[in-house]
Design a protein around this nucleic acid. Structure first.
Lengths: 189, 189
DNA sequence: CCATGACCAAAATACAATATCAGTCATTCG
DNA sequence: CGAATGACTGATATTGTATTTTGGTCATGG
């Protein structure tokens, strides 16, 4: 059986359960049923193994995002569905949730880096979607990088930050209602 | 001379220079030229002294914000000028900058609390301005709390967060250009 | 020839001794 | 007499050190 695959799965399991800092290479080796040295024939070090896992998660997120997009639906509908889906990963996906926790509690540099990477990935993903919509004539030309950034940060604030200072989280309808009436509306061609 | 005033000034100076955690009550007493016990006749404890200082800073921020608002100018112009002004405080105002640093580095609970309080103050300030503009018929009715929150978070993201992942900060014109074309535009009556 | 786990230096942790600090209160001073 | 004071105290933080853990290597054996 594919040793590289086994190691990846073992690492993903351990990172999800204990976080980056608290999983040891010995532990990964044990779970994967390989000698520790074997890991280093596939991954240069712990951080590269971690990056490989993170990359796999990004691919999963993109797939989950694609799964909620509807061919032919408006930019607004799809962008909303996609961003909500990706933001839901924060609470849903065990590894993602664990990493967010570790970033807050331990400040592990490798974790901070990976999470920043994921966010930047999302923004450039949104940016690509905006550019496609502009090309199609659905949206009017704009600074796509900046708009993607603003859109992502807005969703992040509404979905994540709002709950920190208010007792009840914002409903998806209320979020869509607000952004539909403000940002989305103004982007239309 | 007013002992309470002297203590406040001494504390403000020390908090600005060394942060909350690193300033001792002995130090404040020394700077204020009073015995340590005297501080406790005016303030119940270190945290209440800190809160008093924070309150003073909020008043200062409000004044600075009012100073850049122009009577008779549009909501967009004044809201932009006010929010930019308040956000500039983060780098400008010695105490504010120190506290932001301390929140990031030390995670001091009292500091986290105060900074959250300040942000919530700004949001409710913006909210009041929105409601006034609606009453005047300049803006169309909307969920003022939510819009104020979104507006503040958008500015925060553009002014503060953008710089973290990109080499050059966003110019004020670019920020205004983006938000004028999106959020502000859609709020108009 | 590749997988392995004993091995190593470096980093983290645990712990104890020491120092610092917020807050009190008996005393002092005006 | 009442407000100001600073020595005092228990709790918390810091420092220094002994011990353990861990990422990464490499000589060995299957």
């Amino acid at each position: 059986m594919d040793r590289r695959q086994e190691i990846m799965e073992a690492a993903a399991k351990s990172f999800s359960l204990f976080g980056y800092k608290a999983t040891t290479m010995d532990q990964v080796a044990k779970i994967a049923n390989v000698g520790k040295g074997t890991i280093y024939t596939f991954f240069a070090n712990k951080e590269e193994l971690f990056n490989a896992i993170a990359l796999k998660m990004i691919v999963e997120m993109r797939a989950a995002s694609d799964a909620v997009a509807v061919e032919g639906a408006s930019f607004e509908q799809n962008a909303h569905a996609r961003l909500m889906q990706m933001l839901k990963f924060r609470g849903t996906h065990q590894l993602y949730a664990k990493l967010i926790d570790e970033e807050k509690e331990l400040r592990t540099p490798a974790v901070i880096e990976v999470l920043a990477q994921i966010e930047s990935e999302i923004v450039s993903y949104v940016k690509a979607k905006i550019e496609r919509a502009i090309a199609k004539g659905e949206l009017k030309p704009c600074d796509s990088e900046l708009v993607a950034f603003l859109l992502f940060k807005s969703y992040l604030a509404l979905v994540v930050d709002w709950g920190k200072n208010h007792d009840e989280e914002l409903s998806e309808e209320r979020i869509l209602g607000l952004l539909s009436g403000t940002i989305f509306n103004c982007l239309l061609a």
